[in-house]
Simulated scan of single mutants.
Amino acid sequence: MSVEFKKVSEFPRGTLLALLTDAYLFDGRYEQSCHSDWQDCDDFFFEHSQIADKCAFITALDDEPIGFVVWDPRNMPEYAEIGHNCILSKYKGHGYGKLQLQEAMNRILQEETRKIIVTTNDDLIPAQRMYESVGFKMHQRRNSQNVADFIGEHIDYVYSLERNQT
Rank of each mutant, 00 (worst) to 15 (best):
E103S: 05
N75V: 08
N106R: 13
E47N: 15
R114C: 11
H84A: 12
R129V: 11
Q32G: 10
G95N: 05
E132R: 12
V118F: 06
A60N: 01
Q50R: 11
N143S: 12
Q128T: 11
K54G: 07
D63Q: 06
S133D: 04
Q140F: 00
D43L: 10
F57M: 06
E81F: 06
H94V: 06
D37W: 11
Q165H: 06
T59N: 00
S2I: 12
Q110A: 15
H84N: 13
C86V: 15
D22G: 02
E132A: 14
F45N: 08
D123T: 12
K6N: 15
T120S: 04
F5M: 11
A56N: 09
P77E: 01
L25R: 12
V147W: 04
F57Q: 08
A80D: 10
W38L: 07
S33C: 04
N75S: 14
K7Q: 13
V158A: 03
H154Y: 01
D27L: 08
D63K: 05
E111C: 09
M1D: 10
D72M: 07
H84Y: 11
L109V: 08
S36T: 09
L124E: 13
K115Q: 09
I58L: 09
E112M: 11
R142H: 03
K98M: 08
E162A: 09
D37K: 12
L16K: 09
R114M: 15
L19C: 03
S144F: 00
N121Q: 15
V8S: 07
Y159S: 02
R74D: 14
D40T: 14
S9F: 08
G97F: 00
L88Y: 14
F150G: 00
R114V: 11
H84K: 14
P77W: 03
A18W: 06
G67A: 04
R107A: 10
M76G: 10
C41T: 15
I87R: 02
R13N: 15
Q39M: 14
Y91E: 10
N106W: 10
Q50Y: 14
N146F: 01
F11K: 12
L16D: 06
V70K: 05
D63L: 13
Q102E: 13
Y30R: 00
E78C: 13
V3D: 02
A104N: 00
L99N: 07
I155G: 03
D122S: 04
Q110K: 15
L101H: 05
F11E: 09
Q140M: 08
G14A: 11
D63S: 13
F150M: 03
D27M: 05
R141L: 01
D156R: 01
E31N: 11
L99G: 12
K6V: 09
I117K: 09
F11Q: 10
I117E: 05
M76W: 09
Y131P: 07
D62F: 03
M130K: 02
F11M: 11
G93P: 00
E112I: 07
H154C: 01
K137D: 09
F11P: 12
D123L: 05
P65R: 00
L20R: 06
Y91F: 13
Q32W: 04
N85H: 10
H139V: 05
N106V: 07
Q100F: 12
Y30K: 01
D22K: 04
A52T: 11
D156K: 05
T166R: 06
I151A: 12
S9M: 10
R107P: 03
R141P: 01
P73D: 12
V3P: 11
P65N: 00
